[in-house]
Computed example of a mutant assay.
Amino acid sequence: MSDLDPLPPEDAVDLYLDARRDDAAKWTVTSHKYRLRPFVEWCREAGIENLNEVNGRDLYEYRVWRREGGYSNANVEELAPATLESALQTLKRFLKFAADIEAVPEDLYTKVPIPDLSKTDEVSDSKIPPERIPPILDYLDRYEYASRDHVVVLVLWHTGARLGGVRSLDLRDLDLDSNSPAIEFHHRPDTDTPLKNDEASERHNRINAGVAQVLEDFIEGPRREITDDYGRRPLVTTTQGRACRGTIRETVYKWTRPCFVGEGCPHGREIEECEATAFKKSTKCPSSRSPHDFRKARVTKYRNDGVAREIVSDRLNASEDVLDKHYDRASKRRRAERRWDAIDR
């Protein structure tokens, strides 16, 4: 230990994140920042002021603490296996960096107790059935036509784009006047709108005339005419400029609450007393879902409709293996029906 340079855990994390900015996408650095915050908090609670002091036993205790939702910002009693595994993999990478700068023993990172995941554990169970989406769109079309919420939900559903893809759109990325309207996704990391797979995520996606009309009416109507910090004209705007990721995420949580589209509450709650009816607390509803779940539903719908995997892969910028493993949420029975539909011709 005497050969190690003393370093507070929070300072070590700052150095790690700064180093990752040279070789990782912005969202990777951000995700690692959030994954390492609990470790810094745990060190503080454990009275560890010098990263040199952390040993293998500490790492196991941290794993248990993290698994059981010990982090102050955790909203769960127990962390999902896949989430815990991701957190510990990031911690392992961080400790390898810490060893390189002589803040921990060279082999400490090998002692991070990474859980073995089953195939079931590797895949998130969170999903939204595709048939839940049309009623939401019908409601928006009737009561909140061409609103910002309508545009966010519509683009997410019709393109299957990731949250970051929708946020990245500028007015110049829309071709609404031609006979083949389309949306283009561009990787622009230097102006704060990177795409998940960098340039490989760039694509030209056709949209139908109905979607194009809603976008046109939004641009000519409710959209706030505002530029972002880089002089760009975003499609989805707020009073501050380009909508942040949280704004888009909260929009989807809001509209996937069953009570919001006249379905009532499937959880037996009194709607007048339910805290999840408040916009900022929509995640408290057990049925609210994220933009990522929208993407899963879009893949499932395409595949149920017989769209070939390679076409879905190209449109959504995801490999066929990833589509099958993480996005296609059809049941085994439904998948068997698809196979039969393809065979019985």
Rank of each mutant, 00 (worst) to 15 (best):
R93T: 14
I136Y: 00
S178R: 01
L117Q: 03
D121T: 09
S86N: 06
G160R: 02
Q89Y: 12
T120K: 07
D170M: 09
V112R: 02
S147C: 08
D175E: 09
K127L: 07
N179V: 13
A82M: 10
V166E: 09
E184Y: 07
R162H: 06
P134F: 00
T83P: 08
L137V: 02
P129T: 09
I101F: 00
D170K: 07
R93L: 06
D149Y: 01
Y145E: 12
S180I: 13
P181R: 02
G160E: 02
E77I: 08
E184I: 14
D125Y: 01
D121Q: 11
Q89A: 12
E77V: 10
T120M: 07
L171A: 10
S180R: 13
F94S: 05
L163G: 05
I133G: 03
A82V: 13
S126L: 13
L174V: 14
L84P: 08
V76D: 06
L163E: 05
L169G: 08
E106C: 03
I128C: 03
S147A: 06
I136N: 01
P134L: 01
E106Q: 04
E77T: 14
T110V: 13
S86C: 05
T90Q: 00
T159V: 11
A80N: 06
S72A: 08
L91E: 07
I133P: 06
E78C: 11
P115V: 13
L174G: 09
D100R: 04
A99P: 09
N179T: 14
Y109C: 13
E122D: 09
D100F: 00
H158M: 12
L154G: 02
I183L: 09
V166N: 10
E102S: 13
E106A: 01
T110Y: 08
L137M: 04
G164N: 10
P181G: 03
